[in-house]
Design a protein around this nucleic acid. Structure first.
Lengths: 322, 322
DNA sequence: TTGTATGCGTTATCAT
DNA sequence: ATGATAACGCATACAA
């Protein structure tokens, strides 16, 4: 029984007799043999591993994405190497380098900042397929993209609030260095335009995703001479900050101010009153990302693709009729 | 310039002249050379990789643990391979096998069930150090453990409720197949004993961690002829279920029933009223787990250790004075 | 169908 | 201090 026969059995090569297969399997069992995937990877020139870069696993959004993707990869004998950037572009770049040297077969990334040269260069040096999560990177032609229809979702949300009679709607969203924020602000403006209304520019605050930012900006705007009557939080972390701020000011969501958030997380559902959200199937994002990565790993000729996932507005108590 | 010199520079071997170091570094820059960590791992006999098995990254507890551990590993040039079991013992076993074949240098695991033979065997076959998260596995001598003082925390919580005058306190907690549940039930009983009171056995429900279980059991107990006046949820996922149930029954936490949960997550803090929790530093768990893994990777002679992390009771509006 | 031999990119040992 | 070389464990091309 030669080494090569063992290898063939383990990789279910077609040219192997049933007798040999049995013999090899028996010997493996007998000796407690464990194939060394590092060696196999070195020989094959791949690692059967996909690298992830996300800002923070505490964010239920990324937890869902990574979990769903990992499950999908697992079914195809791939593993997930997960790294976090803490929302810092420098760490995005660093992690891209780390994962490249680890010879991951693909990269799935949610960049903190899609405009940073260093990150783009770092990603560009990666040989395998890159899948961007809700990002648009100038000059990275080699990347597939999983996007969400933030445009549609935000437009629907803003129009709903306008239809309820709100005119001073505040929009908190992430930095304009990432694509979803840009799209949300655009769609928000469009909703006002469609109603033939002037946009309250001072209420549009694309600042960042952290709860602290949401807390600070909410307090700031609500204390101003002409405060908003409604607020849209562009992310579940921002919502946390907004709610903290409201509590501190003694204001009630849905009572003193209408509230809409993005993504349905336990907090939005269980808050009293429950929070109206622009929802999407977050697990789907991870699943699709994994598939887009795998299709290009297994067929390098496969061109990068772009998939847009839908949103839907879930109406709840935080946006009552006036 | 020989291969071996390059290797020496890259691993900052002492015997290398400044001149050679400069030359090698220049060449690396020039050629855009990327070391292949798979090959290095094969040669060295390690992968500079730690494998994780947790039930679910959506659980903020595991998100925190994995994030903190990953960060710690990263600082030492290790990567984290993350897998999820969905709370199924069979998948725990499967993932242990997968990670073993990937030649991870250590395993950090939060088992769904610490009594399952298959899982214990699978872990036992792993050569490197194992770090158990809040688990106690019979016959796995080779494992370090990061524990929480659930005993102290639960005892304190129960005594607090008893001191407030509650006599019928319900305890929802995970299955008795994991150590924390066992300890919580024990500590809960002890608190009653210390007050010289009989334990309301029918209110102790160690069933599982899923929200649905919390929802079902809460409804069941609250609809009974003599419902509890207080409830302790042994996990943040259970809390979600409990709150759903209360909402459906039209009951208010802190108003119609006193409520205590475990671990401080956004939901417990932002709920109205805020939920009293048995708190602990969850990020610390991940950090310690990483350190316990690394210390035994780098010194195989280092014996397994057990670290117990403290808890503290954070009093909030859900447990008012009567 | 099976066995033999080579090389993947490193690190480590030995010689220089 | 540096260079040459073997070996890590596997997959594959080729020979049998």
């Amino acid at each position: 029984m030669a080494l090569s026969s063992v290898s063939r059995v383990l990789n279910d090569h077609p040219d192997v007799s049933e007798r040999m297969r049995k013999r090899v399997l028996a010997a493996i069992e007998e000796l407690g043999y464990e194939p060394n995937l590092l060696a196999a990877g070195l020989r094959r020139g791949n690692s059967r591993t996909v690298g992830f870069i996300v800002s923070d696993l505490h964010n239920p959004l990324f937890a869902s994405i990574v979990t769903a993707a990992q499950r999908e990869l697992n079914r195809r004998s791939y593993a997930a190497v997960v790294t976090t950037s803490d929302g810092e572009a420098a760490r995005d770049a660093e992690m891209a380098g780390v994962l490249r040297r680890r010879r991951v077969d693909a990269l799935v990334v949610s960049l903190a900042d899609e405009t940073k040269d260093r990150v783009i260069r770092e990603l560009g040096r990666f040989e395998g397929p890159v899948v961007l999560l809700d990002r648009k990177v100038e000059g990275l032609s080699n990347a597939s993209i999983v996007e969400t229809d933030h445009d549609g979702g935000m437009n629907q949300a803003a129009r709903h609030l306008l239809a309820l009679g709100h005119r001073r709607i505040a929009l908190l969203t992430g930095p304009l260095q990432v694509h979803p924020s840009v799209r949300r602000v655009e769609a928000f403006r469009r909703a006002y335009a469609e109603h033939g209304l002037a946009v309250p520019e001072e209420l549009i605050r694309p600042a960042g995703f952290a709860p602290e930012i949401g807390e600070k900006l909410t307090a700031e705007m609500l204390r101003s001479p002409s405060p908003p009557t409604a607020l849209i939080a562009g992310g579940n972390q921002l919502l946390t900050g907004v709610l903290r701020s409201l509590r501190r000011l003694g204001l009630g969501a849905g009572k003193d101010i209408a509230l809409v958030s993005c993504d349905d997380v336990p907090l939005s559902e269980l808050h009293e009153p429950p929070i109206t959200v622009i929802d999407r199937d977050v697990a789907r994002i991870g699943e699709v990302a994994a598939r887009l990565a795998l299709e290009r790993i297994e067929d390098p000729a496969c061109p990068p693709r772009r998939v847009v996932l839908p949103t839907s507005l879930v109406l709840r108590g935080s946006t009552p009729r006036l």
